[in-house]
Structures are given as structure tokens and as C-alpha cells.
Amino acid sequence: MSARPFSVAMLWAVLCVTSARAEPIGDADAGARVFGKCKSCHEIGAGAENRVGPHLNMLFGRSAAGIDGFRYSASLERAGTNGVEWHAETLDAYIENPKAFASGTRMNFRGIGDPAERADLIAFLRRYSDNPANIPEADPTAVGIDHDVDPAILALEGDPDYGEYLSGECTTCHQSDGADRGIPSITGWPDEDFVIAMHAYKDKVRPHPVMQMVAGRLGDEEIAALAAYFASLGE
């Protein structure tokens, strides 16, 4: 019973402190570059869809955990139920330190400490919301995800049984029930996102040394198999 009022109070504390520090308006073009940190999981612009994270079109005014059918954390669902909506202030607090804003959020992102950088990013995000910026959806900016992968590789059908065996190497760290403390959840991802992320590690585009090492010796078929298996765990 006591958990909810406490978390609301905490949230207000976070909002009051951080809204005072939010930069009034940022540079949306600079923000487009900052968005590079987000686009491995989030799409924005024409044709944007939910990926590992929800799409970010029409974000302003949307309530937290507001896209039907997207699997949010209980923390973010609770924030939505408690009336949190995405505006410059709330986004600023969330992006600064996601886990401080919603402790259980699945958004596995360390946050952006620099207020100016956050303001730029928020200005960029605003371009894709009618309200309050009243700017129409911009033309084809659909960036997909962050790494180019040969369509033939993306088209591979993975064998989930083989993926289950290979997953033993993953589940020492990534929990098969989707829990994600300290190490991200990898269950229930769209196959394609999983494959792209793994190839980004394999090609050393993504920086994490453990993942570069693990992905480095996985073949295309093996990555497809893992994608098929872990996608099935989220069903």
C-alpha cells in the first residue's frame, strides 16, 4: 500500500528539482546528432515503428507508457497511471537519469548529464510532435536502426532450438525471464533488431567489449537462431 504514494512523492521531487534546471529551448539540428544515442532502440519520423523501445512520434502530450500494445516496465506503467505525461520537463528529467525517474524502466540507458545536450535532443524530438510545436511529421527521416546489415542476413530464418542451446552463453548474464538489473533484457525483441544489434557488436560499431567478444565469433546463422529463440521468450 505504501509503495505508490512514496513513488509519486519521489517523482514530484525529481520533477521539481530538474524542471528548474531544464534549458528553455535547444537546437534541434544538434539534437539530431544526439539522437544517435537513442536510435539503436527508438525510431522517429515517417513510418517509425516500435522497436526495442517505443516509436517517438507524437511524443509530446503522450502519457508515460502510453502506446497500446508496447511492453513497458511496471515502473513506467505506474508513472502513466499516476498522470505523468511527456513534455519538455518530464523528458528532461527522464533522459537525465532514466533509473532515477522510473527505477524499474526497461530503457537501459545511462542518461545524458549535460543539460544543453538534453535540450537539443528534446528540441529534436519536438519536431515529430504536432503539439505543442505544431510541426508536421518530417519527410523521410526514418532511420531504421543504427547499423547497416546485408538484407540477406536479415532474411535468414533462425532455428530456435539451436538458439536455445546457444543462449546458454547469454543467460549467464541476461536473464531468460527478462529481468534487467545492470544488464539489459534481451527477451521479446523483434528478430530484426536483435540481428542488427548483434552484427553491430560483431563489427565493433557498438562499443561493449564483452558483447563484441561474444558476437565476434557468432556466425550469421547463429545470430539468427539466437534472435528467433529470444524473440520467442517474450511471447
Binding site: R110, T172, C173, Q175, D177, A179, R181, G182, I183
Partner: peptide
């Protein structure tokens, strides 16, 4: 220090993962 902190947090995640495994 941010990377070192992330590495420690990762070890906590690993602990939860391996003990569940």
C-alpha cells in the same frame, strides 16, 4: 568513473543472471 560504475552495475546484473541460471 562512469564506465567503472557501469562495469560494477554490470557485475551485479551478472550475479543475478548466473544465480538464476
Amino acid at each position: 568513473s562512469a564506465l567503472r560504475k557501469a562495469t560494477y552495475e554490470e557485475s551485479e546484473g551478472w550475479y543475478a543472471g548466473i544465480t538464476a541460471d
